[in-house]
Each structure stands twice: as structure tokens, then as C-alpha cells.
Simulated assay, not measured.
Amino acid sequence: MHDPRWLQLIDRVRADTPRLLDDFLTELSTHDGYVGDLVAADDIERTARNAFALFASRLAGDAGAEEPSAFAEALGLRRARQGVRVERFMEAVRINFRVLWRGLERAAQPDLTDVLLAHGEQVLDVVERYATEVQRAFLEESESMAHQHRTAKERARARLFSGQAEGEELTAIAHMLRLAPAAEYEMLATTHDAERLAREVLDSGGQVFEDGLTTVLLRPRRGPVDWVDADPELTGGYLARVRGLDRVGSAALIASDLAERADEGTVCRLRDGFASIARETMLERLDGFTHELTGAFDALPESERERLAVTLRTFIRTGSMQRTAEELFFHRNTVLKRLRAFQDLSGLDVTVPRDAAIAMVILDL
């Protein structure tokens, strides 16, 4: 059972609640970004009044005072949802303690100072318990909110990079991910140095999406110099201009396709991988009819097809019989004979742009 003189001191503090509130609000008002910013003034006053009432109840040992405080838990949860930073929230709790202690000192004058000193440790225990309760509730709710936000952002990224979002949903995704819907972006799909690149892209205001073993990176375009030209260490599939978020889904598919075609340590642009991608697409539509384009070429033994293909590939790339001969260490007439042999077999004259385009795509040259 408590000392009657201690209970007398607590009763004096309860009677002094209006002054405690004034002192608390005055001190708290000196901390920017709390009162009137994130938390309404009437909320602050009501909360402070309830906090002082809880302190007095626990100090007096009232019935039920030892139970966990629903008020403290609700306060921590509410402040987390209001967006108050944890350090500002806990500073308000510390102000509660300072104001309470000054109120106890006033109430103890002149005849109960010895009682206050005798119960000083109890005061500390009550305030520390309150601080622990509100902080635990605040941090748990903050973590829950952060998890929900992360989950929501992950869903938003998945929808964005899948290309399924449009209209109002795309606008909402742009807002959540802090992206400009109509801006111009660059995209790289890679399996190399993804962690470093992800940090750089996120710091630059971009977004990152993990697609299996491939990391797709989207960042705002910064100027005329392509990302891959500014960073020679990049490897993978690259698109220089993705005009608007509504094209991110299709861009991700293309960039991932290009990444699969990139040689180790190199960047594959759309021009580099176009023929290969086009060939795959066309073969689905032309299944069983490619002979209409390649004639008897497909009937040659594989070694002979590859021998001619090396010459065709080099010629299409250089556009010159002389350079082709020099690169392959052939006589110019050898190059000419192989091109004619291919024309006799397939009916395609690769010195003619139309036929060269067909050969490049269908034969993946």
C-alpha cells in the first residue's frame, strides 16, 4: 500500500494538470514539423492530457494501472500513420517526462520533497515503461506500413514492366514509383554487376525489376550521350530511347531478348539483334515455307552452308567485296564466286538491298 503522503503528492499533480499541459505545449511548439504540421493541435492536447493521466494513475498504483496501456499502443500506432519521424515522436515523450518531473517538484514544495526523492526511481520506471510501450507500437506499425508499401511498390513495378498497366492505373504507378509518365528513358537488361547498377539507377530516379536471372534497369535519359557509351563496363541488351512509361513493358521484352544475344562483355543494341529477333518472329509465321526464300540453300550439308554463310555475313556487314576478301584472307574472286554460288542456290543476290535483307533475316546473318 502506498504512503498516504505520496498519494497526496499525486493528487496535487493531478490538480496541476492545466499547467502541465501549458508547459508541454509551449515546449513542444519549439520543435518544427510536429504541432500543426503532421499532427493537429487538438490531437496533441488530448494526447498530452491522457498521457499525464496515465502517469498519475500508474504512480498512484490505481487498479489496472499495471496492465499494458491501450492508450500508449494506440498513440504509437497513430503517430506512425501520421508520418511523424521516430526521433520527433520520442522527443515529445521526453518532453512529457521533463514536464511531469517539474510538476512533481512544484507539488512537493514545501512539505513533500522527501517523499518525491524517496519515489524518484518509481517515477523513472513509470516514464520508461510508457516510452517503451509507445515506441514499440510506433516501430511495429512503421515496419508494417513499410512492408505494405514495399509490397505495393513491388506489385507496381511488376505491372509496369509487364506492360499490363494503362490509363489511371499507369498514372497511379508513376506516382507511387516517382516516375514521369511521358519522360524519355533508357533501358538495360543484364546479368552482370546488377547490384551496383541497381543502386545507381535507383539513386538517379529510375526503377529496377528482377526478371528471373536478368535484371531490367530503367532510368531517365540524361542527355545526348547514351548510357552504354558513358559507361563502357555495361553489358547486356540496351534500348536508348523508351518514350513514356506506356512502352516500358514492350521495351523490357526487347531488352531481355537482346541481352540473350549479347556476347560476354558487350552491349547488344536493337540494330545488332534485329535480324535475329526478326528471324525468330518470321519463322513462326513462315513455318514450312522458308524454301520459297532460300531455295536449295537449305539442302546443302551444314558445313557447306556455314562456309557460304561466313562470306555472306561479312559481305552484308561491310558492303564491299574487297573488304570481305581482306577480312577473310580470300582473293576477291573467291568472294565473288561464293556470292554467285549462293545466288544460284537461293535466287537471292545479296548485292541487291532487298535480297540482302531477306538473307540477313532468314539466315540470321
Rank of each mutant, 00 (worst) to 15 (best):
V310A: 09
F315R: 11
V335Y: 02
T334E: 06
T334I: 06
P301K: 04
F330Q: 06
T324G: 05
T318Y: 09
V335F: 06
S320F: 04
L336C: 12
K337E: 07
R332W: 02
E302N: 06
A309S: 08
R305Y: 01
V310E: 08
E327D: 12
E326L: 10
T318P: 08
M321A: 15
E306I: 00
Q322R: 15
R317Y: 08
S320H: 13
T324H: 05
A325I: 06
I316R: 13
V335P: 00
A309K: 05
R323P: 09
L328F: 13
F330D: 02
R332K: 10
T314K: 10
I316P: 01
S320R: 10
R323F: 08
K337Y: 12
R305K: 04
E304I: 05
E306Y: 05
R313Q: 04
R307Y: 05
M321F: 12
G319H: 15
R323Y: 09
L328W: 10
T334C: 02
P301R: 03
R332Q: 06
A325F: 07
E327F: 09
E327I: 14
L336H: 15
R313H: 05
T311A: 09
S303P: 00
E327R: 13
S303D: 03
T324K: 08
T314N: 06
F329S: 09
V335A: 02
S320Q: 07
V335W: 02
I316N: 09
E302A: 07
S320N: 14
F329M: 12
S303W: 03
M321K: 15
A325S: 13
V335E: 00
E326R: 14
R317I: 03
T318C: 05
E304D: 09
Q322T: 14
T318K: 13
T324V: 11
S303G: 07
A309E: 01
T311H: 13
